[in-house]
């Protein structure tokens, strides 16, 4: 991490821009949910896509994941793998039951 005042000033600018972008995308998220894209999965997918993009901005810029050490990435890769696995497992559990329980 560069700590010179000039670098930090540049960071500040980036933070302001990202913050503004996040606000704009929040408005967009709300707006698109009033538009019907034809299918529930499409509606949910688009909403989640925007949310993921916003979350990515926060993680990448605010949480400095754009220049972090290898060790941190290693930890996070495993974490995200397991979270994704958990999502998949829970979806599968609903999609593939022997008997429907409802």
């Amino acid at each position: 991490m560069a700590d010179t005042p000039e670098e930090l000033q540049k960071h500040l600018k980036a933070y302001t821009i990202v913050g503004a972008a996040l606000l704009v995308f929040t408005v967009i998220t709300v707006a698109v949910t009033y538009v019907d894209f034809g299918h529930t999965f499409a509606n949910v997918g688009i909403g989640l896509g925007i949310a993921t993009f916003k979350a990515g901005l926060v993680a990448y810029i605010f949480m400095h994941l754009n220049h972090e050490r290898a060790m941190i990435y290693r930890i996070l890769v495993f974490t995200f793998f397991f979270v994704a696995g958990m999502f998949l497992l829970f979806m599968l559990a609903q999609a593939d039951p022997i008997t429907r329980f409802r």
Binding site: A93, D96, I98
Partner: peptide, 21 residues
């Protein structure tokens, strides 16, 4: 350690999980 995360449901064969799972 890695594999231990993706074996858990073998405790649940009797719950009516589907064949694929």
């Amino acid at each position: 350690g890695f594999l231990s995360f993706i074996v858990g449901a073998h405790h649940m064969y009797m719950t009516g999980m589907g064949a694929w799972v």
